[in-house]
């Protein structure tokens, strides 16, 4: 990114914030429909002091982290297993497809019924929603390993485990990370839906609570908070990707 594009991006942000601040009033929009930026900012401090905004943000962040971690691990493990076993994949593929098509967030009420108004149903929704993109990406990457590279080390007398460790697993890394990028944003969606459905924890709860009070600015604060968590999660994945895939030519890494 050169200076011109950075300057352009900042200019767009300023225009956006300015129109948020003065636009609603200029168009005669009431505060309860679209609160101005300064009112949302003001609401932020009120919630910080009186609604334990920090605590709820941290709870949501922890749920995202756990859901993402567990979902990504399961996706990786099962993606590798199915990638290495075409028979198992062929047997399971109709069910995998069905589960993949099923809207994962629709499970949220069910999980709340099972696990109560705790953090667990939220984590579970995130696990479920994170699992698929990671698994599918890893599976196809393990399948797409260059057979010549496998042959090369087979001729070197590599064992099955060595073939996996030296070739198949590292070849799947770029695909794993593109799965993780998608998953990091999906994890926030999963957790949010879980929180909207029930419980009194997290930014999703604050969102529903503000809605109940007709506090539009509070809803905005929660949305911004959730977005920030999503951005941090995504940035963390991109950071890790740059560390792990440092051996790739820069052009092959999509920018953050």
């Amino acid at each position: 990114m050169n200076y011109r594009t950075i300057a352009g991006s900042i200019a767009i942000l300023l225009v956006f914030l300015a129109s948020w601040e003065w636009g609603p009033a200029a168009m005669g929009m009431p505060e309860y429909v679209l609160p101005s930026l300064s009112n949302v900012w003001h609401e932020f401090f009120i919630m910080w002091q009186h609604s334990e905004l920090l605590k709820h943000t941290l709870i949501t962040a922890a749920e995202v982290l756990l859901g993402f971690g567990i979902g990504a691990f399961l996706g990786l493990a099962i993606g590798v297993a199915l990638g290495l076993s075409p028979t198992a994949e062929a047997m399971l593929s109709p069910y995998i497809l069905a589960l993949q098509i099923a809207p994962k967030v629709a499970f949220a009420p069910l999980f709340v019924m099972w696990l109560g108004y705790t953090i667990y149903p939220k984590i579970l929704v995130a696990v479920l929603i994170v699992f698929f993109p990671v698994m599918i990406n890893v599976l196809s990457a393990v399948r797409a390993v260059d057979p010549d590279m496998v042959n090369l080390i087979r001729i070197m007398n590599a064992s099955r485990w060595q073939i996996f460790r030296l070739v198949e697993f590292p070849s799947a890394m770029p695909a794993l990370f593109s799965g993780l990028r998608i998953a990091s944003t999906l994890a926030v969606i999963g957790v949010t839906v879980g929180e909207l459905v029930g419980g009194n924890l997290g930014l999703g709860y604050l969102l529903v609570d503000s809605e109940g009070q007709g506090n539009t600015a509070g809803v905005f604060v929660a949305i911004v908070g959730l977005t920030v968590i999503g951005i941090v999660a995504y940035a963390a994945v991109v950071f890790a990707e740059k560390r792990v895939l440092h051996y790739m030519p820069k052009a092959n890494l999509a920018t953050a």
Partner: peptide, 9 residues
């Protein structure tokens, strides 16, 4: 082989 088959990582 014709391909170098170096492991990029």
């Amino acid at each position: 082989l014709q391909k170098d088959l170096l492991m990029p990582w």
